[in-house]
Amino acid sequence: MEEAEAEEQQRFSHRQRLKAAVHYTVGCLCQEVALDKQVQFSKQTIAAISEVTFRQCENFAKDLEMFARHAKRSTVTTEDVKLLARRSNSLLKYITEKNEEIAQLNLERKAKKKRKPEDENRDFMELDADVVGSDS
């Protein structure tokens, strides 16, 4: 019983920290917009935007989990995220572009890793040839 209460308290504490982080980030974004557009945001407005943002993120997380589960997977993929963003063309385009950039970087890293052993072998062979050539 005490374990369950401790776990619940930990979940509550984690949720509160997440909410605080969202509130802080929304506050920072509102400050930037306020400076750029020369408008003011009340504390109540920032709090309301923060709450809506947090709830929307919870809904997104649940939807992503359902998409993965529907596909009989336990891992959320970028395809799930694209499906979630399908109603916002600009967001979908941004996610797709970022996904392609990441995929390209991963390919380049893999290619470098494959080349590295070959380069080391070639360097060793050249060094070996130099040593054999100087012995003659």
Score class of each variant (00 low, 15 high):
residue 34 A to T: 06
residue 34 A to E: 10
residue 35 L to S: 10
residue 35 L to V: 07
residue 37 K to Q: 13
residue 38 Q to S: 14
residue 40 Q to E: 15
residue 40 Q to H: 10
residue 41 F to K: 04
residue 42 S to R: 05
residue 44 Q to N: 13
residue 44 Q to Y: 08
residue 45 T to K: 05
residue 46 I to C: 08
residue 47 A to H: 06
residue 49 I to S: 02
residue 50 S to P: 00
residue 51 E to S: 12
residue 51 E to I: 07
residue 51 E to D: 14
residue 53 T to Q: 02
residue 56 Q to I: 02
residue 60 F to S: 08
residue 62 K to S: 08
residue 62 K to H: 04
residue 62 K to R: 04
residue 64 L to A: 00
residue 66 M to S: 09
residue 66 M to Q: 10
residue 67 F to C: 03
residue 67 F to A: 02
residue 68 A to K: 00
residue 70 H to M: 02
residue 70 H to G: 05
residue 72 K to I: 11
residue 72 K to T: 12
residue 73 R to H: 06
residue 75 T to D: 08
residue 75 T to Y: 05
residue 76 V to Y: 02
residue 77 T to Y: 01
residue 77 T to D: 04
residue 78 T to F: 11
residue 78 T to I: 14
residue 81 V to E: 00
residue 81 V to L: 11
residue 81 V to D: 01
residue 83 L to K: 00
residue 83 L to E: 04
residue 85 A to N: 03
residue 85 A to Y: 04
residue 88 S to H: 12
residue 88 S to W: 04
residue 89 N to R: 14
residue 89 N to M: 12
residue 90 S to T: 11
residue 90 S to K: 08
residue 91 L to F: 01
residue 92 L to W: 04
residue 97 E to K: 09
residue 97 E to I: 11
residue 97 E to P: 01
residue 97 E to Q: 13
residue 97 E to T: 13
residue 97 E to W: 03
residue 97 E to D: 15
residue 98 K to L: 12
residue 99 N to I: 01
residue 102 I to C: 09
residue 104 Q to I: 10
residue 105 L to T: 05
residue 105 L to A: 08
residue 106 N to G: 09
residue 107 L to H: 11
residue 108 E to T: 10
residue 109 R to Q: 13
residue 113 K to T: 08
residue 116 K to Y: 14
residue 117 P to M: 09
residue 118 E to G: 02
residue 119 D to K: 07
residue 122 R to P: 05
